[in-house]
């Protein structure tokens, strides 16, 4: 598999505000491969979200380089937010349609795509509802539907399940894996939950904080579907924990 996104000595130091002068990221070089499920894991405040924002183009103040493979552009990327980031004054339907407004001119085509995503996530009944009327799990389904509606090739996910209860999170992880496989996505996700990383990822980059560095990248070769009680699962978890807290 060839690289889809290449990071070369990416560093970031806050240039203003309370944290001025503090170095958050130091010399991070990474290669994300096409179609892989890549996870950045590390403790809260270790700068993983900042790195994700740099990779996705949301954060522009950094040094070093982030290069997309030829044939890809910014419009091939999409983002799922930790707190869903749904616009409260738009209905579920309108929220999912958001990214299509600038991409798909025909309203009829947009409707087709939105309806397909509504069906994918079991949201048909809620098309006319507002986000506040939905549970957290349903809201993140809308967040996922919205990000997938634009047919991304790279999906960035910032702790997408951390605001959800464990049952809902479990269910959504399953759905995400199916979608990742079916649509041939490249997923780059941030989490602070080691078990979640092992369940989902092909490769796991372990972050250590202040300034954040990639301590090590683990290949996760466990066969899918992954059993959280398998011995190899625990082995890998132990290694990850040991790397985070040496």
């Amino acid at each position: 598999m060839s690289a889809i996104l290449t990071l070369d000595s990416v560093s970031k130091t806050f240039s203003q505000g309370e944290r001025k002068g503090i170095s958050v990221l130091k010399d991070i070089s990474l290669e994300i491969k096409e179609h892989e499920f890549f996870i950045l894991v590390g403790p809260s405040g270790s700068g993983k979200s900042t790195l994700l924002r740099i990779m996705s183009g949301l954060e522009r103040e950094y040094t070093g380089s982030v290069v997309l493979a030829p044939g890809y552009n910014k419009r091939d990327m999409s983002f799922v937010f930790q707190q869903f980031a749904l616009l409260p004054w738009l209905t579920v339907y309108e929220n999912i349609e958001l990214g299509l407004l600038s991409r798909v001119a025909s309203e009829h085509e947009r409707a087709e795509i939105v309806n397909k995503e509504l069906a994918q996530f079991g949201l048909e009944r809620f098309a006319r509802s507002y986000p506040k009327e939905l549970s957290g799990g349903m809201r993140q389904r809308v967040g996922l539907a919205r990000s997938l509606a634009v047919s991304p090739k790279i999906l960035f996910m910032d702790e997408p399940f951390s605001e959800l209860d464990s049952f809902t999170a479990e269910e959504l992880r399953g759905e995400l894996l199916n979608i990742w496989r079916e649509r041939g996505l490249t997923v780059i996700m941030v989490t602070h939950i080691v078990e979640e990383a092992i369940e989902l990822a092909d490769r796991i980059a372990v972050f250590t904080p202040r300034p954040a560095r990639v301590e090590r990248i683990y290949e996760n070769t466990l066969s899918r579907p992954r059993n959280r009680r398998a011995e190899q699962f625990f082995d890998l978890a132990d290694k990850l924990y040991a790397t985070i807290k040496p």
């Binding site: 924002r53 996705s56 949301l58 419009r75 990327m77 999409s78 983002f79 937010f81 930790q82 707190q83 869903f84 980031a85 749904l86 616009l87 738009l90 309108e94 958001l98 990214g99 407004l101 600038s102 991409r103 919205r146 990000s147 634009v150």
Partner: peptide, 22 residues
């Protein structure tokens, strides 16, 4: 919220739609 602003950026809302929807 910052993440609303980021969503608007990721989903490339602009011009009239940026005005009307955001």
């Amino acid at each position: 919220r910052d993440d609303w602003q980021e969503a608007v950026e990721v989903f490339d809302l602009r011009g009239y739609q940026y005005f009307r929807k955001f």
